[in-house]
Simulated scan of single mutants.
Amino acid sequence: MAASLNDIARIAGVSVKTVSGALHGGSARMAEATRERIVGIAAELGYVTNLAARSMRQGWMPLIGLVADDLITSPFATEIIRGLDSAARSADMAVFAMTLGGRRDVGAVLEEVRRFRPRAIAYAAMYHKTVTLPDAAKDVVGVMINCQETQGRVLSLVPDEEGAAHEITRYLIEADRRKLAFINLPGILAGELREKGFRRALVEAGLDEAAMPVLPAVRRAIYSDRAPSLVAHHVATMMQGPNPPDALLCGNDRVAMEVYAALHRLGRRIPDDVAVASFDNQVDIASRLDPPLTTMALPHRLMGRMAADILLSADPLPPEVRRLPFQMVERRSV
C-alpha cells in the first residue's frame, strides 16, 4: 500500500495538516527541524503526492497546459518547450502540450486542455505571427509565446525581429561592408519586421537604401521551405552583375545554406569576396557550414522561461507585447 499523509503524521507525532504543510509548501511558521524530520519520514516510506487529491483541495493540478500551434514540428522552436519545462520543474510543476493544426478549432483544443485542470495555460506558435483567439479564450490563456493576439488582449512574448535585423545589418556595415543585399522571407511577419530593421540600419549609416535590394527567397507570396526557391537565381544575377554585393543577409539559416552553395558554384569565397549572415541559429546548419555561419539566435528558450514565470506569478499582469532580443552568434562568415 502507498504511504499516506496519515501514516507520516502518526510516525512523526504531528497533525496531518502539519505534514501537508511540510511536504506541499504550507505553514511558514513551522520549525525547520520539524519540516526536515517530516520530509525524511516521507522519503523513508516512499510517499508520493496524490495529485488527484491535491487537485480537489486546490482546484488545479500542478500542470501548465500548452496549446502548441504547429510548434512540435519545428526543430528549433522546441527550445520554447525546453525553457518552459525547465522553469516549471523548478516550481514542482509539469508541462503537457496539445497540438493545434489543420482543422482543429482553438476553442475546442483549449477546452481539452482545461479538462486536466492545469494551474495555467500558454499558447505557443512555431513562428512569429498574430493569432485570433475566441473571446472566451482571452481569460483562459495566460501568456502567448512567439505570437501575439490580434486585439492585444493577452500578454505576449515575441522575438524582436526588427531589432535583430538592425543589429546584424549594423554589424555588417561596421565590418566595412557597404554593398548589401537581403534575401528575405516574403509574406510573413518576421520578414516584414526584419526588412524594417535592415532598412533603418542602412539609413542611419548614410547608405543608399535604394541600391540595396530586398529579394524574396521563394517564388510564392508566403515563405515556406517547401516552396520553389529563388535563392540561386538571385545570387547568380547579383554576383555576375556590374555592382555585386559584398554582404548577403539571409532570411534564415536554410536560405543561407542555399546562398553558400550558389556562391561556391560561382567560385566566390566567404567572407573574402562576400560576407554572409542570417537569422535563427539552427545549430545543425549554422555550425556545419564552411565557414561556420554568423547568425542571430532566436530567444526561444528565454521566452519559455519567462512564460513560466508569468504563468506562476501570484499577481496578474496586464496585456502587452514584450519583444525579447536575439543573441548574435559570431562565427567566421563575416
Rank of each mutant, 00 (worst) to 15 (best):
A2D: 11
L23V: 07
H24V: 08
H24T: 12
A28V: 06
A31N: 12
T34M: 06
T34S: 09
R37K: 09
R37A: 10
R37P: 00
R37W: 09
V39D: 01
I41L: 15
A42C: 04
A43L: 09
L45E: 11
Y47G: 06
V48S: 11
V48E: 14
N50Y: 10
L51W: 05
A52G: 13
A52S: 11
R54P: 09
M61G: 08
P62R: 08
A68I: 06
D70H: 15
T73E: 12
T73F: 14
S74N: 12
A77W: 04
A77L: 07
A77V: 08
I81A: 11
R82C: 03
D85Y: 06
A87R: 12
S90D: 09
M93P: 06
V95F: 10
F96N: 06
A97Y: 07
M98V: 11
G102I: 02
R103L: 13
V113H: 00
A120I: 02
A122P: 03
M126K: 14
Y127C: 05
H128I: 01
P134D: 09
P134H: 04
A137K: 11
K138G: 12
D139C: 10
M144A: 15
C147I: 09
C147H: 07
C147Q: 01
T150Y: 11
L155N: 00
L157Q: 00
V158W: 03
A165V: 01
I168N: 04
R170Q: 15
A175Y: 11
D176M: 12
L180H: 03
I183L: 13
N184F: 02
G187V: 00
G187S: 02
I188E: 01
G191H: 00
E192W: 10
R194T: 01
R199A: 03
A201T: 05
A201E: 09
A205C: 07
E209S: 05
M212I: 02
V214C: 11
A217G: 11
R219C: 08
R219A: 14
R220H: 10
I222K: 12
Y223K: 08
P228E: 04
H233S: 13
M239G: 07
Q240E: 15
P245I: 03
D246R: 05
A247C: 09
A247F: 12
L248A: 04
G251D: 08
D253H: 13
M257S: 11
M257E: 03
V259L: 06
V259M: 03
G267V: 10
R269Y: 02
V274F: 15
A275L: 09
V276R: 07
V276S: 05
A277F: 00
N281H: 10
V283P: 07
V283I: 14
D284G: 13
I285H: 09
A286Y: 15
P291Y: 12
P292M: 08
L293K: 13
L298A: 14
H300M: 13
L302S: 14
A307Y: 07
D309E: 13
D309R: 13
L312Q: 01
S313L: 01
P316I: 06
L317K: 02
L324I: 06
